[in-house]
């Protein structure tokens, strides 16, 4: 049996509430995820589908603030050893101030930040400031990118690249077909020497999808599928733990 696939597990800070979101993080870590992507909810998440939208509004209702988000990240880091990335939207970062947001991110132990609507050239200093502070700012790449644009982002030589396997919003099931894989190989060609660690996902919810994507990336991102489990309620920590185990293939290895 091959080694389990690396999973970047996504969760929404303060969903369903401050304390329970720590339980979610614990479940993800116990399930053996390789990374945690912690989303700071924004009132108007235009890149997200219905599951994450609902989670973000619930988290805001529950009292999420950006300060509380950093506290949440710090609390997670106390019991989780895998690297944590903070994902959010431009306005939360811009309003706090780039330098301050990133300094706070580093102080709470985050490995990096992902802000899809601050792409290189319209990034308000995200990439420069993160590099200065020793944080990984992760560009988000999509199959609709032109060659010129892709190589422009490539020149940043970031440590990580986040690749969406299709266009559209988060959530709905992605058929892992030749177009997604073809884009991953375009990214690999652009990334001279293959130095960057590619985090690939969007609409991944089954072991079959993970198996199809995993050989081509450093880690597979799983988002809405986990958020839906949290939405379903009950023992969410166990539910997300089992899903991470199943998707990574750790279960198969153990059971074999």
């Amino acid at each position: 049996m091959s080694a389990p696939s690396r999973i970047m597990a996504h969760m929404v800070a303060w969903y369903p509430d401050g304390v329970s979101s720590l339980e979610v993080a614990r479940g993800l870590a116990d399930g053996g995820c390789a990374y945690i992507e912690l989303q700071f909810p924004f009132s108007d998440p235009t890149a997200d589908g219905p599951d994450i939208q609902r989670a973000c509004s619930a988290a805001l209702e529950a009292g999420f603030t950006v300060d509380a988000g950093f506290e949440c990240a710090e609390a997670i880091r106390r019991f989780v050893t895998v690297p944590l990335f903070i994902m959010s939207y431009a306005n939360l970062v811009f309003t706090r101030g780039m330098e301050r947001f990133l300094t706070d991110a580093r102080a709470c132990g985050a490995r990096g930040v992902i802000v899809p609507d601050l792409p290189p050239d319209y990034d308000e200093g995200l990439f420069r400031t993160a590099a200065k502070l020793g944080l990984a700012a992760v560009p988000v790449l999509s199959p609709s990118m032109r060659e010129g644009r892709l190589s422009r982002v490539g020149t940043l030589e970031t440590e990580y690249l986040y690749v969406t396997l299709r266009t559209g919003t988060t959530g709905s099931f992605t058929e892992i077909d030749s177009s997604g894989l073809e884009f991953l190989s375009r990214v690999a060609r652009m990334d001279h020497g293959g130095k960057a660690k590619v985090l690939g996902g969007f609409g991944v919810s089954t072991r079959e999808q993970v198996q199809a994507v995993s050989p081509h990336v450093h880690a597979v991102v799983v988002g809405s599928a986990l958020v839906r489990l949290v939405a379903a309620g009950g023992d969410v920590a166990s539910a997300v733990r089992e899903m991470v185990r199943k998707l990574s293939g750790a279960q198969e290895t153990v059971g074999a």
């Binding site: 431009a90 899809p116 792409p119 319209y122 988000v140 790449l141 199959p143 644009r149 559209g168």
Partner: peptide, 11 residues
Amino acid sequence: GRYVAEMLRAP
């Protein structure tokens, strides 16, 4: 400005 995720850059 044009503060959009990469997927909307080309369109």
